[in-house]
Amino acid sequence: MTNTVPETGKGVAYGLAAYTMWGSFPLYFALFEGIPAWEVLIHRVIWSCLFLAVVISLLRRWLPVTAALKQPKNLGFVLGCSVFIAANWGIYIYAVETRHVLQASLGYFLTPLVNVAMGLLILGERISRLQVVAVVMAGVAILYQFFLLGELPWITLALAFSFGTYGLLRKKVELDGLSGLFVETLLLLPLGLLTLVWLSSQNLSHFTESAYSTLLLLSSGAVTAIPLLAFAGAARRLKLSTVGFLMYINPTIQFLIALYIFHEPLSTAKLLSFVMIWVALALYSWSAWVGRARTV
């Protein structure tokens, strides 16, 4: 008990930090206007890899990395994490650039439900009856929004399932947060470098277009790696359902940015569905708090 409680506290702190930073990312990725989302993604891979290599060197943490790379047969889950997080970020950057931040926020509202479902069905985690009611209520609200959209909200669905699957696979990876994230990024590095070389050969690269674009693309490494590090630390210390609960911080911030800064349209009916989700979140939070108080 003495070891579990501090680790849980650290996990919550890491989760809060990660989701607050992610929630603010529409403001950051809006700066990349004119640069295709997939090009931003490959620079994120390249410079994140370099940034993480520097961090690992400073902390002298190369031993678990080299040990993992010496056993390529055991990198299946890590490769899965690489693919799903790359897909998630590519779609997310596209959503911001095309001003579909409300749809992106809906995707991240849906992700905790995916996390809870995977926790229950795959990992055998349990939640209380009141938490089940909360999850069902949020699910009804999301289905209500799907109906109002009048079309398949592919951005929402892709973001939810790609990040939910990433969270599940990350719990299967035995590497610590920093080492795991570096290996994930390292596996994508060859593809990123090849794509950058091709872009340069075709004079399509925005990297050297101006000092502004160069610095902006360089910054994508550290800016996007830091919250991923925090998330990895949370995922290893918390139940998947708890990670999913904290996830609501991210889309709430995105929702406010989309509404008050990007001025995306929001009808009264859509607002009602968001309110239903927030009520469900309140129920989930209260139930989790009561359950924790009974175990202390």
Rank of each mutant, 00 (worst) to 15 (best):
W38L: 13
W38Q: 14
W38T: 13
E39W: 00
V40W: 01
V40C: 11
V40N: 03
V40Y: 07
L41V: 09
L41F: 09
L41M: 12
I42L: 15
H43E: 13
H43R: 12
H43N: 15
R44K: 12
V45T: 09
W47C: 02
W47L: 05
W47T: 04
S48L: 05
S48T: 02
S48C: 02
C49Y: 06
C49D: 03
L50R: 09
F51E: 11
F51T: 12
L52M: 10
L52S: 02
L52Q: 02
V54W: 09
V54D: 07
V55H: 05
V55E: 00
I56M: 05
L58M: 13
L58C: 13
L59V: 06
L59Q: 11
L59C: 08
L59R: 14
R60W: 08
R60T: 07
R60S: 11
R60K: 15
W62S: 04
W62A: 04
W62E: 01
L63F: 03
P64W: 02
T66Q: 14
T66L: 14
T66K: 13
T66Y: 12
A67T: 10
A67I: 00
L69A: 00
K70Y: 07
K70N: 14
Q71I: 11
Q71C: 13
P72S: 11
P72H: 13
K73D: 15
K73W: 15
K73H: 14
N74I: 04
G76K: 06
F77R: 04
F77A: 06
F77Y: 12
V78W: 03
V78G: 03
V78K: 04
L79P: 01
L79E: 03
L79F: 00
L79C: 02
G80K: 00
G80C: 00
S82C: 06
S82H: 04
S82E: 09
V83C: 10
V83Q: 07
V83K: 03
F84R: 09
F84N: 01
F84Q: 03
I85F: 05
A86F: 01
A86D: 00
N88Y: 03
W89Y: 01
W89F: 00
W89M: 08
